[in-house]
Design a protein around this nucleic acid. Structure first.
Lengths: 210, 210
DNA sequence: CTTATTGGGTGATATTTATCACAATGACGG
DNA sequence: CCGTCATTGTGATAAATATCACCCAATAAG
C-alpha cells in the first residue's frame, strides 16, 4: 500500500480521517501503459484516483473511433467514477493509461458514505467535477470552432505541457486521438515543420514554437 | 419574491434552512427571451438557478461564433456560477434566455458559506456539475463523431424534447447554434422533408420522425 | 395595395477533410 | 547484412462543408 505521507502529498487538504479511510478501503492498483482502465458502457464498480503516471480520457464513437478529451494526473480523479453510485450507471467515457500508472481503486459503496462523513471529500468531488467540466469546455471550444491545423497545435501543446517538448507519439496515435486520419496529421505536421514550429524525427518530434 | 411552497416544488429535497437562506438572500429576477444572462469573459457575481422558462448555454468563439451546448430548465442551475467564488473567475460560457424566464440570483459570497452549512446544497452542487458534465459529453460525442446531418437531427430532437414537435426556429438560428451556415441547414432540412422526417412551414416545422 | 424586410431555395465554386493506393525509409530481430 | 515491419511521404480523388451570388415568396409596415 501507499504511505500516509505520500498520500498527503498527492492529495493535500483532506481531513485526517479521510486519509485513514482511503488507506483502509482503497486498493492500490497498477497498470501498464496502454491499458484500458474503464471502457464505455462498462459498469463502474470503483472510483479511480491517480497516484502516479498519466491517464487519458476519451469519448468513444459507436463505429470504434476514439476522441481524446483530457489528461488525468496524480492527485486527480476520474469524475465519472466519483458519483455514479447514485444511479449505478455505466461509464460514458474510456480511460486509458498513457504511461505505466498507479491508482487507488475505491469501491463505490464508500462514495456516498464519505460524502456524508468527510467535508473534504465533498470538496474534492466538487473540485474534480469543476476542473473536468472546464477541460471539456476547452475541448468543445477547439472542436467547435477550429480547423484541424489549430486543433493539432492545441493537442500538441497539451502534450508538451504534460511531457515536455519532445513529443513521442506516432502520427497514427495523434490521428486516433483527434479522430482523423494519419495522412492528415502527417501533412499538417509537415506544414508545421516548414513554419519552423517543430523539428521532426522518426518516432518523435520537438515542439519549438515561440 | 417566490413562495416557499413553489420553491420546494422546483428544488426538491433541500434542507428547511436552505429554503429560508435562499428566500432571504436570493433575488428573483426576470429576463426577456433572447437576453444574454451571462457573457463569456464576464465576471461572475451571482449564481443562477432557473425558476421558470428555458436557458440556453453556449460556448463562444473568438470570431463571434456561438456553439450551443445544452438547455437549462426550472430546477436546474448554471454550473459555472456555483463554484466560481473559489477563484473569482470569469465565465467560460454564454447563457441566453431562450424564453422569457425567471431565475434566482444568489450573490456568490454565499456559495462557500452554504457549502459549509447545508449538506443538501452540497449535493445540489454536485448533482448540477454531474448532469452538466454529462450533457457536455453528449455534445462532444455529436461534434466529434457525427456529420452535420446527424448533428442537426440530434439538435432538433433536443429541441423537440424541450418544446414539443413544432420547432419554431429559423434556419439561421439553427445554423448559429450549430456554428454552420444557413444554406447548409436549409439543404439538410429539405433532405429531412424528403425523407418524411419533418413537415416544413414558413418560420417553423414539425418533427414527425418515428 | 404597395413596398420593404425577412426567411428560405438553389446553383456555382472554394476549402477542408477523408480515403485510397502505393512508395520510401528507418528500426530491429535474426 | 537481410528481410520484415512499423512509420512516414505523397499524389489522386472523393466527400463534406463553407461561401458567394442571387432569386423568390411570405409577411409586416405604411
Amino acid at each position: 500500500m501507499i504511505s500516509k505521507e505520500a498520500l498527503k502529498k498527492i492529495f493535500p487538504n483532506w481531513e485526517e480521517g479521510l486519509y485513514d479511510a482511503v488507506l483502509n478501503e482503497a486498493e492500490l492498483k497498477e497498470a501498464k501503459a496502454g491499458t484500458a482502465l474503464l471502457k464505455m458502457g462498462q459498469n463502474i464498480k470503483s472510483a479511480m484516483l491517480v497516484v502516479e503516471g498519466t491517464v487519458k480520457l476519451y469519448q468513444e464513437g459507436e463505429e470504434g473511433g476514439e476522441f481524446f478529451m483530457y489528461h488525468l494526473n496524480p492527485g486527480e480523479a476520474c469524475a465519472v467514477t466519483l458519483v455514479c453510485n447514485f444511479h449505478h450507471e455505466q461509464s460514458q467515457v474510456l480511460a486509458k493509461a498513457m504511461t505505466d500508472i498507479k491508482y487507488l481503486a475505491i469501491p463505490i459503496e464508500f462514495m456516498e458514505k464519505w460524502l456524508n462523513e468527510f467535508k473534504s471529500w465533498h470538496y474534492f468531488v466538487i473540485k474534480t467535477y469543476r476542473s473536468r467540466y472546464e477541460e471539456l469546455l476547452k475541448t468543445i471550444h477547439e472542436t467547435a470552432f477550429k480547423n484541424m491545423d489549430e486543433r493539432l497545435a492545441f493537442y500538441i501543446e497539451r502534450q508538451v505541457h504534460q511531457f515536455g517538448n519532445t513529443v513521442k507519439l506516432t502520427h497514427q496515435e495523434i490521428a486516433n486521438d483527434l479522430n482523423t486520419s494519419r495522412e492528415v496529421i502527417s501533412r499538417l505536421l509537415k506544414k508545421m515543420e516548414n513554419n519552423g514550429w517543430i523539428i521532426m524525427n522518426r518516432n518523435s518530434f520537438d515542439w519549438i514554437k515561440k
